[in-house]
Design a protein around this nucleic acid. Sequence first.
DNA 1: CGCTTGCTTGAGAAATGTCAAGTCGTGTGG
DNA 2: CCACACGACTTGACATTTCTCAAGCAAGCG
Lengths: 318, 318
Amino acid sequence: MNQSVRQYRVISSTAPQCAAQAGATTRACLSDLLRLMDADAETGPASDSCPVLMRPLRAGTALFHEHGQIDAIHFVSMGSFKIYRTAEDGYEQVLGFARRGEVLGYDAVCLGQHPTAAVALEDARVFAISVRELFALLQRVPALDRLLHLAVSRQLTRAAEIADLMAAVAAEVRLARFLVLQSEQMKACGQSPVRLLLRMGRRDIASHLGVAHETVSRSFSVLADWGWLHVNNREVEILDLAQLKTFARSTRRSIDDIGVRAKASSAPAELLPRSNARELSWVAGRQGFGFDGAVTSGGICIDHPRPGATATKHSHAA
Amino acid sequence: MNQSVRQYRVISSTAPQCAAQAGATTRACLSDLLRLMDADAETGPASDSCPVLMRPLRAGTALFHEHGQIDAIHFVSMGSFKIYRTAEDGYEQVLGFARRGEVLGYDAVCLGQHPTAAVALEDARVFAISVRELFALLQRVPALDRLLHLAVSRQLTRAAEIADLMAAVAAEVRLARFLVLQSEQMKACGQSPVRLLLRMGRRDIASHLGVAHETVSRSFSVLADWGWLHVNNREVEILDLAQLKTFARSTRRSIDDIGVRAKASSAPAELLPRSNARELSWVAGRQGFGFDGAVTSGGICIDHPRPGATATKHSHAA
DNA sequence: CGCTTGCTTGAGAAATGTCAAGTCGTGTGG
DNA sequence: CCACACGACTTGACATTTCTCAAGCAAGCG
């Protein structure tokens, strides 16, 4: 564990270096790549004489820089990456974290240069396919084309995750969602879904969630106080994944309930005022449609606000 | 303009209907699709005997529903769409708005079902390619494959836009960013970049920005008071695009300056305390790297925070 | 003509940001 | 080897923004 912390120190203290310098780029086999991407599709004929490279990266080194010219698209084989963007004034927006199986740099294909930067959070390894030869290769190896389409499609679903993390919920919920996502990704990688070793710092998490890093700290403490998890710096053990997931699903409206239950069961009822509901656009359904006036105040609405539901509206150390 | 409002009423009051019901699906030509996507690549041989359909949609009808099975991927030819996700409790998260040239439903390819829903904000038209035949078609028509890759790559860059909109900035800035994006998209479609007709309601915008709809209203008023724009319900005229863009770029730290200038020039100096800086993860770069102690405080750092840069730290109506 | 809906605005409450202090672990340098 | 400095993380107190609730206005539609 000490080691992991040391790794991070290295990370944050290094100005990302160019990937090319980082390690020996070795020639790899296309079928390895196909296997990596859970492709049960057979590799096809031309699989072994293909321009697929393998790049090892040390922790803290950049795979590519913002505005850097695109030379290849990458597939993470090992390790994890932070994807981010830096504003003119230095504000760093973390867009996500990538793991084994994910595509990196594909968003640069349409631009010719990278709109984002990627830096390894730990020692890592990626497959690289030169964009020069990309389209030709895709034609030669249909399996790769299919694989790439599927991978990118999956990547697109991540966009919604970003929105989920940052939009319209209390800070603790954002953190819970983040942890649940991490947990699921760990599981997908065959590791324990409850013992997380977060490779990124609080600031990175904060940026990703769209809150202040102090708020992240506080949220960790709150979730720990409620008994959902055990936090020791970057080691996080999820003690009650089920409830964490339930909590993560809550919109501001529903926090009260869950929170209260939580509080009752494990904490001495001191925290949690909670009662919000940022944005919503409730599935209207209420209003009569110009047409078939019958449903004018019908019950199509999914779940009503229950104004003043929680009873303990203001537990506030009462 | 009245008309547009009427259209919207239909939208919000309608439970989205299945696209199939909405209009006659007509057979279309693949080369039309290729032309739509700014492909100067020639269409190739098999272009005209291809399973490309054209679907017209009336305002308010859904192109596909959340969790609905994927049958095709779509390319917007005309009109605009709202992409959203609905939580269990009815909370509707708007993920984005799509226009001419954008791909819809591609994120479902890897899942077999749609993780999001899409509904037309106005009368619209899309090209549809059945997923059944998709991969075969991509092999037969390399130009289409290339085009799809490029389009999806562009779509991926949208993920960063979502983050930009929702993360770590004051509400007025989020709105400004949103408007700038809208403006740019209008321009890309060949329309006026300063006269916007927002097809979506305040709630949708609010959800997209991650704030309460009242806050959106107030932010509109603020930007209008500052003289950046003229707002009349869903008609927005941008009066000073340059300054709006500058403002949109600001992080919380820099709002003071711009806000002050704005205030001084057009408003009677009453609003705007402002002084934040949510999350940041400043590119550290300062601390020495364990190895090669030379760079201990070197200048590898990309762009230093300029601590206390803005001078007018707390202009506060002074 | 009244209803509904969307939009705006106000006032008070709550959440989060900001500033600041303190702890701890690590790496540096004496 | 130890002292020191630096950075990450946590926590507290206060300031500020945003949310929530509530009311009012305007417009479209039945």
